[in-house]
């Protein structure tokens, strides 16, 4: 196997076991630059665990994770973030006690050291960038609102905005439309289609309609392994996928 690859992200023979239970089992996954990849699979398939592994939240038991040809599985969470990987959690994970503006400002990739934060200066450039992002995530009119008062869908958007402002090369979204209304879903799909322009995106999603509206390539996970991979048509045609997932 060649060590130098063109892949942005390469997971090879990745296994993680929780007390003997292999949530991810000898998994290989490759993400190209500029690719939008959707991961689907039944509950408990290991989808969230894969993201946890990539972003350093869970340590792998064996295997390797390379980002731009560098091993990242040994790095700390914040180091992985600084390399350019952003991750949205399955349940909205924002700072409820802060305003929308402050949530975005904190996520701006500067002033990340103690004294940098202490002597932080809210420069115009930063305010503008926050507004720009807020515009994209449909929250421009809510900048001064405390984040805890946002609706569920708005919280999801805010979290996406917090990632966008980090300008990551790889963006990972865990069920971004869960709990959203139909109109919010449409807006989120539009948002995703604008933000994938200059980066790679990995999306986990259950909602097949939504998947079809955005998907390029789809990976189906089942019991910690890749069951199938390919475009939507191929996945739909796959009998094993029908059996474990799409069938019901």
């Amino acid at each position: 196997m060649a060590n130098e690859t063109d892949f942005l992200l390469a997971l090879e023979s990745v296994t993680v076991s929780f007390d003997g239970f292999k949530a991810v089992n000898d998994l290989n996954l490759y993400i190209d630059k500029g690719e939008l990849r959707v991961i689907i699979g039944p509950n408990g398939a290991g989808k969230t665990t894969v993201l946890d592994l990539i972003c350093g939240r869970t340590k792998l038991s064996s295997g390797s994770i390379k980002f731009k040809n560098e091993e990242i599985s040994t790095l700390k969470e914040q180091q992985i973030v600084r390399r350019g990987i952003g991750r949205k959690f399955q349940t909205p994970s924002i700072y409820e006690d802060l305003t929308v503006f402050e949530n975005l400002e904190l996520s701006f990739p500067r002033g990340r050291e103690v004294f940098g934060a202490l002597f932080w200066n809210r420069a115009n450039e930063i305010v503008e960038r926050v507004r720009e992002i807020a515009e994209m995530i449909y929250l421009a009119d809510h900048l001064d609102r405390s984040a805890e008062t946002l609706s569920h869908g708005q919280k999801q958007w805010l979290e996406i905005g917090m990632l966008l402002i980090q300008d990551p090369e790889l963006l990972m979204l865990d069920e971004p439309v869960a709990g959203m209304s139909v109109s919010e879903r449409a807006k989120t799909a539009a948002l995703l289609n604008t933000i994938i322009k200059n980066r790679s995106v990995v999306v986990i999603e259950h909602d097949m309609k939504f998947v079809e509206s955005i998907a390029h390539r789809v990976t189906v996970l089942h019991q910690g392994k890749v069951l199938a991979e390919g475009d939507m048509e191929k996945i739909h045609a796959d009998s094993r996928v029908k059996e474990v997932y799409l069938g019901h």
Partner: peptide, 14 residues
């Protein structure tokens, strides 16, 4: 105080 884990994913060494 709110979400220590999340702060790491904003790139800070908590």
């Amino acid at each position: 105080r709110d979400k220590e884990d999340r702060v790491r994913f904003s790139g800070y060494d908590v």
